[in-house]
Amino acid sequence: MKRKMYEIVGRILLYGCTGLTVGLLLFIIGYIIIMGVGGISWSFLTTSESVIKGTIGILPAIKNTLFVIAVSLLISLPLGVGAAVYLTEYAKNKRFVAAVEFASETLAGIPSIIYALVGVIIFCTALKLQKTLLAGSLTLVIMILPTIIRSTQESLKTVPQSYREGALGLGSGKWHMIRTVVLPSSVDGIVTGCILAVGRVIGESAVLMYTAGMSMAMQDFSIDRLSGASGATLTVALYHYAKENADFSTAFSIATVLLILTVIINFSAGFLGKKLKRS
């Protein structure tokens, strides 16, 4: 009798909780799309906001997002891949390896509001970059570094030792071996790391709100003006419309765009991850 109850209650919990999770998921996604899809049009995506015409466009936010992604990846990709190569190929000092790995884990665990503070203290104030997209991107470099280190490291570990021995046996130097054999065969993992990093950058809001600004105006990205460019990325724009303007339909349209980007990122990371596992 008691065992029967156990069985019934257990089943209710398992199915109920899974149902709740899936239901929540469908509700959140459905709600965002229903509320947001109507506001998405060609001009929404390709113009900037015009108070005179009373139209709303998110092109500046898209451009700002792309800029932040480009700059932060440009710096953290070589740094992260380099650190991973060091850890798997060169490192001999166990203590130092442990220190680097600990540092990377710590960076991964720090919440973004702390990064926001650090960005404000170091890049905006100490380095006098002010509130600019550049300051925001530099802060994000630190934030996405562990993502790139980790996935590069994982794919470096899957490169068979025999490849390395083969290359070294043919008389190539260590760096030559890494460049011609190790890195090419772990390119999948590096790309996956980049995709995940892009996902983090796209989803990030706290850091950028305080280090890159909230302007919805079109920015000038020419090199000499770069230090002055400041503006909102998609997530910050969403916050701006929702919380400061109470313009929820625009906020949901941006949410829909973000949702689509998330799907694309998850799909491509998953696809590459599978490919990585197979090889």
Binding site: I28, I202, S205, T262, G270
Partner: peptide, 19 residues
């Protein structure tokens, strides 16, 4: 269900805030 849940993980926090 699994990829759907990882989608839930990838949704930006401002979107959760909005909903």
């Amino acid at each position: 269900i699994r990829p759907a849940i990882s989608l839930l993980a990838g949704i930006p926090s401002v979107v959760y805030g909005l909903v």
